Structure formats: C-alpha cells, structure tokens
Computed example of a mutant assay.
Amino acid sequence: MDLDVFIDRHRASWQRLEQLVKRSGRLSGAEADELIELYQRVTTHLSVVRSQTPDPATVERLSSLVAQARSKLTGTHTPAWQIFTKFFTHRLPAAIYLGWRWWVPAGIAFYLLSGIMAAWIASNPDVQATIAAPDELREMTKVGGGYESYYSSDPAGSFAAKVWTNNAWVSATCLLLGVLFAIPPIYLLFTNAVSLAVGLGLMFGAGRGPEFLGLLAPHGLLELTAVFVAAGIGMRLGWQVIDPGKRTRTAALAAEGRSVVAVALGLVVVLLVSGVLEGFVTPSGLPTWARVGIGAVAEILFLLYVFVIGRRAARQGETGDVDASEREDVAPTSV
C-alpha cells in the first residue's frame, strides 16, 4: 500500500472528523450521525495503517484523533469525588426528605405506643410479674444491673461494631422487605416499640426511669430516627405495590427501589455514628447532661441535614433516584 496515496485519499475525512471533535457546544443530530460514521471510518483507517505500513507519525495522528472522537461520543468521566459529594449533598438528603410523610408519622406512632405501654407496665406490678420473676426484675433494674451494665458489657470498640451491625441489619430489613406490602417494617417497628416499652416500664416501676433515659438518649435519639427513616421509606416502597399511581407498577418499584438503595447506603453512615455514641459516649463517665447533650446535638444535626439540605435538593428537582443517563429507557405513554 502506498502510504502517501492513502493519506491523500482520506485526508478530507480526517480533517472533517477533527472539525467535529473540536466543535464547542452540542452537535446537531446530523452532525452527531456524521461523527459516528467518521469515527468508525477513521478507526478502520488506523487499523489498516498499523497492519500494512505502520508509519509512526500517521499512527500517532490517527490514534489521537480516534481517542478524541471516542471521548466526544461517550462524554467525559465524572470524577469519583464529585459523585461522592453529590450523593451526600443532594441524592441522599433529598431521598430522606421526600419520605418524611412516612417516617415522621411512623416515629410519632412509635413513641406514643412505647409511652402508653411503658406507663401501663410501670403502674401494674402484676404485669411486671408476667415479664420476669421478682429476683430477675431486681437484678435488671438495680444500680449497675442488667439494663445499665449492658452498655459496658464489651470493650467500647467491639460493642460499637456489634451495635452498628445489628442496627444496620434491622434497617436493611425494613428497607428491602418493605416491598412486601409494607408489612415487615410495621412489624419490626411494633416489636421494637414493645421492647423499649418493657425496659422503660420496668425501670420507671423501680424508680430509676430518669437514669434509664439518661442511658438511652445519647445514642437512642439518632438510632431510633434512623430506624424510623428505614421503616418509613420501606413502607413507601411497599405502597408502590398497592398504588403505583400513573406509573406502571414495575416503573414505580424501579424508581423507588433505587432511592431505597441510596437511603440504605446513607443510613450505614448514620448508624455508624449512633454505634460510636452507644459504644463510647453512653457508658462513659461524663455527667448525664453532657452525654444527653451530645446525643441531642447529633440528632439536631441530622434533622437539619434532612430538612434544610434535603429540602433544598428536592426543590432543585432531586428525587434520590440516579441520574437520567443511568436509568433505563422508557417508551412514551398516554396519560
């Protein structure tokens, strides 16, 4: 093959591809089609030159041109740090914020149920007797007893890791199994409300309620809020099975499911903070007001994150779903 003749024959195609590659702004539909056609043609030219007359200068020129055309066609890669930042500043807080009509009522119902049951248990010795034998009740509620010693039963780091794993599992169960008509999240909320009510009722019945609250509040405020979020978002997912609205049930579940994944990843971080508080702050020698204050600050920061940053992101159009370019293609439907 005569290289000079080959270059002269295809120079116009190469120059036109270079023009399209260097064009600023968006290409028209015809120009985009032309870019694809020329990219494929010049790729073939590069292969021919490499195999028959591998002139270094020509190979370098065509390789660079093909690489630039490929970049123009596929777009630039978004840096990982930008994806990470956008997730925590837009996608995650918006997903949690948009589900507040589910998880806030769930939290209110949880506290009401726990409070009513705890008051009933605390004021009825007969009910307390059905929970455990008198000796066991005294052992659980005494100073340094079962409820109090639980938080220092293991080294702080190990205890924090165990708590984190358990809470992450409960939250993941609420989120992922919510698709079963929202029944699993409701059941898990109910069983946890009963468990909390038993502890509160027994400790208040023994006259040590404030001490028990002082142990719960440092980590419990944020921990329970994370569970409420998981349950609420899980119930919203389950509702899509019952009433998907104008979308098909498959499309509704796909969109909500992607938001659920975002919330699940975010709650891992929230529950890690809660686990650290439970492992290091709750059993610490700090005065009660300091421990409760730390827990309250963590809770307030989380709520501000959701209702300020999340609300702003939602108003900007963020839904917690992935970017449009990463979603499945959909066919138009009539309304």
Score class of each variant (00 low, 15 high):
residue 324 A to M: 03
residue 72 K to V: 02
residue 136 E to M: 03
residue 162 K to R: 14
residue 215 L to P: 01
residue 151 Y to P: 01
residue 40 Q to R: 15
residue 137 L to M: 04
residue 315 R to C: 02
residue 5 V to T: 15
residue 271 L to M: 11
residue 268 V to L: 13
residue 30 A to G: 01
residue 331 A to K: 08
residue 115 G to S: 03
residue 74 T to E: 04
residue 166 N to W: 10
residue 223 E to I: 03
residue 182 A to V: 12
residue 100 W to Y: 04
residue 125 P to Q: 06
residue 307 F to M: 09
residue 321 D to A: 13
residue 70 R to C: 05
residue 144 G to S: 08
residue 281 V to L: 06
residue 239 W to Q: 10
residue 40 Q to G: 15
residue 216 L to R: 05
residue 52 Q to M: 13
residue 246 K to F: 08
residue 45 H to I: 00
residue 176 L to H: 08
residue 53 T to P: 06
residue 63 S to Q: 11
residue 102 W to F: 06
residue 162 K to Y: 09
residue 53 T to R: 15
residue 154 D to A: 08
residue 301 L to G: 01
residue 20 L to V: 07
residue 223 E to N: 10
residue 200 L to E: 05
residue 21 V to H: 11
residue 269 V to Y: 09
residue 186 I to K: 11
residue 261 V to K: 01
residue 10 H to C: 15
residue 70 R to L: 07
residue 171 S to I: 01
residue 112 L to D: 00
residue 124 N to S: 14
residue 75 G to Q: 04
residue 333 T to C: 08
residue 315 R to L: 11
residue 94 A to E: 13
residue 209 G to N: 08
residue 6 F to E: 15
residue 60 E to S: 13
residue 295 G to Y: 00
residue 329 D to K: 03
residue 308 V to L: 13
residue 114 S to N: 00
residue 325 S to V: 05
residue 60 E to A: 15
residue 216 L to Q: 06
residue 304 L to A: 14
residue 288 T to I: 06
residue 292 V to R: 02
residue 278 E to D: 10
residue 147 Y to S: 02
residue 271 L to Q: 08
residue 97 Y to P: 01
residue 286 L to H: 02
residue 288 T to S: 04
residue 160 A to L: 09
residue 250 T to I: 07
residue 75 G to T: 05
residue 3 L to I: 15
residue 265 L to A: 11
residue 65 L to Y: 10
residue 169 W to E: 09
residue 24 S to M: 04
residue 109 A to Q: 02
residue 333 T to Q: 14
residue 296 A to H: 00
residue 87 F to Q: 08
residue 212 F to I: 04
residue 236 R to Y: 05
residue 226 A to N: 08
residue 282 T to A: 02
residue 121 I to F: 09
residue 49 V to Y: 11
residue 53 T to E: 13
residue 260 V to P: 00
residue 54 P to T: 14
residue 154 D to C: 01
residue 309 I to A: 15
residue 13 S to I: 14
residue 62 L to P: 05
residue 242 I to D: 12
residue 41 R to P: 09
residue 59 V to T: 14
residue 206 A to M: 10
residue 26 R to V: 03
residue 181 F to S: 12
residue 167 N to D: 05
